[in-house]
Design a protein around this nucleic acid. Structure first.
Length: 480
RNA sequence: GCUCCCUUCGUCUAUCGGUUAGGACACCAGAUUUUCAAUUUGGUAAGACGGGUUCGACUCCCGUAGGGAGCGCCA
């Protein structure tokens, strides 16, 4: 039995991402999509999308929309239109019929109840549950009337099935552990493992890159390829992403859905960079552009061991991307992010009322101090704060009698200043502090408290400029 | 239980038989500083364990331990 990826090497590369629309795009799925996308773009091939919606109970149109939306947000563009698996059921049935006609499949009259009993027995006897259907070699004439058969693939009972995997290496599965998989249910619906093969073949997929959880499926799917005498695509089973404790990523680890990462204020470029470094690396490179990732990426460089998701590192990376963004880009990110944030509508309205230009003016100081968009927005709260400002405890303590005097005196100097820019304002305060034999911090901190209501903020002079002369002097007046 | 896979600093990783085992995040200390950050300098920290093979193993082989995935008329 051949395990060679039959001639696929000479064909143009075609990868695909095939999510089932039963929920949001899982962050692990996003990484799988990213790897497929990177590999396709790296090789100049195509990246296709297939929606595996054959589970009619759980598949929902809104999930399809959410997944596509997340993919777009991540800027993973796919080629052509997404293919919907359920719509291809007739084609799947046709191939199943061909298999039956060629003797590679047979009608199995085992009922779900029969199978449940067989499984129970296997478990009781601590044997692996492998179905050995009596209908594999039975005379079709003896078929029971009235029961609808399922269709099973007739696969070798002995020998082994080999998966030549670009990540996992040569994985050998004994055929005795693989039973005759059902390709068509008794109601005529094709099963996943079968539909996938037909679709991948019809879509001319050359490289299947998916999570290791599909490794055993691949052995079964390989048997379908062999039965149909179709060329095998190259397989790459990438390790799964785990939570901080090493267990499968789940709710309690923070977030599973890509949409949640967006709501937490991560930038798509940062998330892409982070995700690409989970299981894959290019020497010591940590921060790199998507173009560089495309130039460097190769499935052969993906490791086999699972990686733990580290929010702290993602945050650090996100901070880098926030700082590296131009003010205009960042502004666009913030405005796109706000609708996805908690209380975002209210914040949007507040910033609009205060004037978006004030936020834009404060951005240079703000972006140095934020790891995520919500942190940045929080740092910008002083802009939308209403007079008189409610000072927090630390800010309150900064405004003592001496501070009030300084604020009064400085306000007069500020008012007289011909220019309202950071260097001029700083010069005034420095001059004042020097004249009174005080450290700059001693004078600047009360100003910060009066201006922002907090003891921590971007540089005070930048704050004053962002606020504008009228608002700044009014806030100072409130505390004097 | 059965099959398959994994195991380098706390975390992500480099190394592809010969290195003082490198980088990044985190952490600690210093510098800088109007706060907090950012920046910058330095530091702590790793080959799961036990056997082989070899002149020489993190690297190759075997075993043990730990971890993961899969075992549906789900996808």
């Amino acid at each position: 039995m051949s395990d060679k990826p039959n001639s696929t090497a000479t064909r143009p590369i075609v990868t695909r991402f095939a999510p089932s629309p039963t929920g949001a795009l899982h962050i692990g799925g996003a990484r799988t999509a990213l790897f497929n996308w990177l590999y396709a773009r790296h090789t100049g091939g195509k990246f296709l999308l297939r929606i595996e919606d054959t589970d009619r109970e759980r598949s929902k149109p809104e999930h399809v929309a959410a997944i596509l939306d997340s993919l777009k947000w991540l800027e993973l563009d796919w080629d052509g239109e997404p293919l919907f698996q359920f719509a291809r059921a007739d084609r799947h049935r046709a191939v199943a019929g061909e298999l039956l006609a060629r003797g590679h499949a047979y009608k199995c009259y085992l009922t779900p109840d029969d199978l449940a009993a067989m499984r129970a027995r296997a478990e009781a006897e601590k044997r692996p549950y492998v179905v050995e259907s009596p209908w594999r070699d039975a005379d079709p004439a003896t078929a029971p009337a009235g029961t609808k058969p399922s269709l099973r693939l007739k696969t070798p009972r002995s020998g082994e099935t080999v998966v030549a995997d670009q990540v996992q290496g040569r994985v050998v599965i004994p055929n005795k552990d693989l039973d005759d998989m059902i390709i068509l249910r008794s109601d005529g619906a094709p099963t996943y493992n079968f539909a996938v093969v037909v679709d991948d073949h019809d879509m001319a997929v050359t490289n299947v890159i998916r999570g290791v959880d599909h490794l055993t499926n691949t052995a079964r799917q390989t048997q379908v390829y062999h039965a149909m005498d179709w060329p095998l695509p190259a397989f790459a089973h990438i390790p799964l992403v785990h939570g901080a404790d090493g267990a499968k990523l789940s709710k309690r680890h923070g977030a599973q859905g890509t949409d949640e990462y967006r709501a937490m204020g991560y930038l798509p470029a940062a998330l892409r960079n982070y995700l690409s470094r989970l299981g894959w690396s290019h020497g010591d490179d940590e921060i790199f552009s998507t173009a560089q990732a495309v130039a460097w990426f190769d499935v052969a460089d993906v490791g086999k061991s699972p990686a733990r998701f580290d929010f702290v590192k993602l945050g650090d990376l996100n901070g880098h991307y926030i700082r590296a963004s131009s003010d205009a880009e960042l502004m666009a990110h913030i405005r796109a992010f706000l609708p996805h944030a908690e209380g975002g509508a209210l914040l949007s309205a507040s910033f609009a009322a205060a004037g978006w230009d004030k936020l834009a003016a404060a951005l240079p100081g703000l972006k140095e101090r934020a790891k995520t968009l919500p942190e940045l927005v929080d740092g910008a709260r002083f802009i939308i704060a209403q007079r008189p400002l409610a000072l927090d405890d630390k800010a309150l303590k900064l405004i003592d009698a001496d501070a009030k005097l300084a604020i009064r005196n400085l306000s007069a100097l500020f008012d007289d200043s011909p220019a309202w820019d950071a260097p001029s304002l700083e010069a005034i305060v420095r001059g004042y502090a020097e004249a009174h034999g005080q450290k700059l911090g001693k004078v600047a901190q009360p100003l910060r408290a009066a201006l922002t209501g907090r003891s921590v903020s971007p540089p005070v002079f930048d704050v004053m400029v962002a606020l504008g002369k009228t608002e700044a002097l009014a806030r100072l007046g409130d505390q004097a």
